[in-house]
Amino acid sequence: MMSAQEFKSVLKTEADAVENYLSTCLNNRNIPQRLQAAMEYSLLAGGKRLRPVLCLAVAAMLGAKKEHIMPFASAIECIHSYSLIHDDLPAMDDDDLRRGKPSNHKAFDEATAILAGDGLLTEAFVLMTETAQHISAPSVLSAVNTVAVAAGSGGMVGGQQLDMDFTGRDDVSLEELQTMHAMKTGALIRCSCECGAILGGASAEEQQCIRTYGANIGAAFQIVDDILDETGTEEELGKPVGSDLEQGKNTYPSMLGIEKSRELAQERVDTAIEQLTAFDGAEALFLRKLAQYIIDRVS
C-alpha cells in the first residue's frame, strides 16, 4: 500500500525531475533572448506537471527507463504551456492571471505571447523526435502522431473553439459539455498516458486499458477544476475564484450542482482505476493513487 504522504512525496519527486529537465530544454536552440524569456516564463511557472508525470509513470510501469522518455514527456508539457498562453489572450479567455502570476501577454506583450506559444508548440516536436535516440523510430512516430491528433483541431484546439462557441449560451447540453472538455482538456491528458504506453511497448490490449484510464482521469480532472472554480481559493487556483461563471462559461456545477458533479468525478476515477487491474508494481500503484488524488482535492 502507499499512504497519502508517500504518494505526495513520489509525485513531488517526479514533478521535480520534470522541472529540472524543462529548465534546460530550450537552451542552445538559437532562440532570440526576449522570446526565450517569454517561453520560459510560462513553461517554468510551476503547476502539477500532471501530463509528463503520467507519461513517465505509464512507460515505467511497462519497463521503460524514465530518462529515455523524459524528452517526450516534457514535450507534452510544452504543448500544455503553449495552450495556456493562448487561452489567456484577450481574444480568447482574456485572463490577467495564470498560476498566481501575470499572464504571458501581461508580463510581455500580446505579440510576444503569441510567438512564445508558437515557439513552445514547435519546440515540442523537436523534443519528441529526440526520443528516437533510445526508443524505436516506429514507436516514436506512433506516439508523435497520437500527440498531434490530441493537440490539433480535432482535439485540444477544436475543444477551445467549442469552449468559445458555448460561452454565454444557456442551451448547451451535458453531452455537448462533456464532448468539449474531452477535446479541450481530456485529449492531452489521455494522450499523455497513451504515449507512455506506446513508448513503453504496450500490447494493443494494454494500450486500450491505459487509453481508457487516461480518458477517465482527464474527465475527472476537468470536473474537479470546475468545482474548485466555485469552492476553491485564489491561492489554490492561481486566478480569481468564480472566473468561469463570470465569463459565462458552462460548467459541471452550473449544470449538475456541486454534489452531483463530485459523484460524477468519483465515477470517472473508479472507472480509471479499474483499467489498471492487470498491472502491478510501484508505478501501477502510483497511477491508482494519482487517479484518486484528483478527486480528493474536492473531498
Rank of each mutant, 00 (worst) to 15 (best):
Q5Y: 11
E6R: 15
F7T: 12
K12N: 11
A15D: 03
V18L: 07
E19P: 05
S23F: 10
N28W: 00
R29M: 11
N30L: 06
A37I: 08
S42P: 05
G46N: 07
P52S: 13
L54Y: 11
A57H: 11
V58E: 04
V58I: 13
A64E: 00
E67I: 08
A73V: 08
P90E: 06
D94Q: 11
D95T: 12
L97T: 13
K101H: 15
P102S: 13
N104D: 11
A113Q: 04
G119I: 11
E130S: 14
S136C: 03
S136Y: 06
N145R: 04
T146D: 00
A148H: 07
A148E: 00
A150N: 03
G159Q: 00
D163V: 06
M164Q: 14
D165A: 12
D170H: 14
D170E: 15
D171M: 12
V172G: 13
V172Q: 11
V172N: 08
E176S: 13
H181P: 01
M183S: 01
K184T: 03
T185W: 03
L188N: 02
S192H: 06
C193T: 07
A197K: 06
I198G: 06
I198M: 09
E205I: 10
E205W: 04
T212M: 10
A215K: 09
A220N: 06
L228R: 03
E230G: 10
G232E: 07
E234L: 05
E236I: 05
K239W: 13
P240L: 01
V241F: 08
K249T: 11
N250S: 14
M255R: 12
G257L: 07
I258M: 02
K260Y: 07
R262W: 10
E267V: 01
V269T: 13
A291L: 07
A291H: 06
Y293F: 15
R297H: 08
